[in-house]
C-alpha cells in the first residue's frame, strides 16, 4: 500500500479552510445534482461496463460485480 498517497489525499479533505457551513447554507449542497452520485442507476450501468472491461472496480461504493462478466 502506498501510504504517502493516502496521507496526501486525506489531507485534501481538511486543508481548504474547512469553513463551517451554516445550516441554512446547506441548501446549495442539498440539491440532487450535488449528491455524490446524482443518478445512481446510470452510475450503476457504467460501473458494470467498467467492471467487465477493467481490473478495478468500486471506489464510490462497493465494487459492483455479482455477475459472470469478469
Amino acid at each position: 500500500m502506498n501510504f504517502r498517497s493516502i496521507a496526501v489525499l486525506a489531507a485534501l479533505s481538511v486543508l481548504p479552510g474547512c469553513v463551517a457551513v451554516k445550516p441554512w447554507q446547506h441548501d446549495i449542497l442539498a440539491r440532487p445534482d450535488m449528491q455524490p452520485a446524482s443518478n445512481p442507476l446510470q452510475a450503476g450501468l457504467e460501473d458494470h461496463i467498467y467492471f467487465s472491461k477493467e481490473a478495478s472496480s468500486g471506489g464510490r461504493g462497493f465494487g459492483g460485480g455479482g455477475c459472470g462478466c469478469n
Partner: peptide, 13 residues
Amino acid sequence: LVSPRSLVQVNYS
C-alpha cells in the same frame, strides 16, 4: 463540506 458550495469525499475500500 469545505465551503457552502463544495464538498470533498474520501473513501477507502
